[in-house]
Amino acid sequence: MCKQINRGWRGCLVTVLSLAAISSTAFADEAWPTKPVRLVVAGPAGGSADILARLLAEGIHQRFEQPVIVESKPGASGSIAIRDVMNQGKTGYTFLVIQSGAVTEVPLAYKVNYQPFSDIKPLAQLSRTGLVLVANKDLKLKNLKDVVKFGQAQKNGVYFASYATGMRGHTSGMLLGQLTQMNMQYVGYKGSPQALVDLMGGQFPLMFDGITTSLPLIRSGKIDAIAVSYPTRIGGLPNVPTFKELGYPELSKAGWFGVWSSPNTPEDIQQKVRDTAIEYFQKPDVQNRVRAIGMEPGNTDTTEDLRADLQDAYTQQATLLKKINYQPQ
């Protein structure tokens, strides 16, 4: 009990306020979330990141019984979505679902308005993925030996496409050319859909694409899958060998999708989102849904491990771009 003697009121007031602040903070931390959580997606509605974000939204909603809003903000190679999270991250209610290439590829290929290793923080992997080398089906190129034989016979070089200039689909094709003595000539596109249409139309023979966008066309027999750029075979393409199996371990680096936050998001909230993501995405039924779109389940790596993987991938991509004398656009 506080008494009105000497300076007792002042000391008592400080004590009461301090205890109130501690109590209020503890209550706020325990109660989070008290309003809807936003998951910002750096891609179109219905795309890979959107599908994964909606799975994560299910997990957050089931655990905390609060609504989760999935908001698509495509464009500018992910910069629009990243800036949103940078601006809103302090609130603890806005998070990002994006591919690791936002850190390891985009800043090397394009001029961006964010610092990849300091403005966003990886919390957890949601899925892992790779690339697939696909071919026009009319060429009857059924394996990598066929592709190399075909490519080496092209006097003016063999043309290939990818979904974006300066990204891993581009550098993978150039690296394959160096490893197999094929003169690879790049054809750039903004996104996979039109490139796949032109591949099927015979505008060029080969393409390095994301597995999720090529998978429906591979399954329907409209294009041929030659090899995947991933450490192991992909569950969605069990009969397609990896480049590593075929003697090219240089083409085996995995990419991944994850949930990210602003580094200014309260650490206890970061941990809650990370724990929820890992727990939910380890469920067998959720992992089957991830595999159904041509991806593999994510690892349970720590944030430090994720940062180390990003730095390694960034260094590899920078080396490849330097070899082909690429300049950021």
Rank of each mutant, 00 (worst) to 15 (best):
A164V: 12
T212G: 02
G169R: 01
K253F: 09
Y93P: 08
I211T: 14
A21N: 00
M295R: 00
K142V: 03
V158F: 05
A135N: 02
K190G: 11
E304D: 15
V187Q: 15
Q178N: 12
D84L: 09
G235T: 06
A254Y: 02
A20Y: 06
Y280I: 02
Q271T: 09
S252Q: 05
D309V: 05
T213V: 15
L141N: 01
K145V: 08
T212V: 12
E250M: 10
G221M: 06
P33H: 08
M167K: 13
I5E: 15
D29T: 09
Q4H: 13
L133D: 02
I60A: 07
E65A: 13
A318T: 05
L139W: 08
T25F: 14
P297V: 05
G202P: 12
L17E: 06
N299Y: 12
S229E: 15
I211Y: 00
P284I: 04
Y230R: 00
A135S: 14
V290W: 01
G169P: 03
S162F: 05
K142M: 10
D224S: 15
S23E: 03
L246S: 06
A81Y: 04
K137W: 01
Q311K: 14
T232P: 00
K149G: 09
M184K: 10
L108N: 07
Q311R: 13
P74V: 09
K140L: 11
V197E: 15
P249L: 04
A57Y: 08
R168L: 14
K145P: 01
E71C: 06
M174W: 11
A277K: 01
L39I: 12
L52W: 04
Q327E: 14
F208P: 03
V112A: 04
K222F: 01
Q4G: 10
V41C: 09
N87I: 07
L133N: 02
Q329G: 08
G92L: 03
G47F: 08
V158M: 08
P116K: 04
Q282C: 01
V68A: 10
T303L: 05
N264E: 13
R219S: 09
M167N: 13
G59F: 06
K322G: 08
M1I: 12
K121Y: 11
Y163M: 13
G255R: 04
N183P: 04
A31M: 11
G298C: 05
G75I: 07
A102F: 02
I218L: 07
S77W: 12
F95P: 06
G89Y: 08
Y114F: 13
V41H: 07
E30Y: 13
M86I: 15
D209F: 02
V68Q: 09
R10T: 13
Y189P: 12
M184T: 12
H170K: 11
K35P: 05
A277M: 00
L206I: 11
V97W: 01
A28T: 09
T319F: 11
Q178A: 14
K272G: 00
T180H: 06
E71F: 03
L199H: 12
Q271R: 09
P74E: 12
D209I: 11
A164C: 10
Q88G: 02
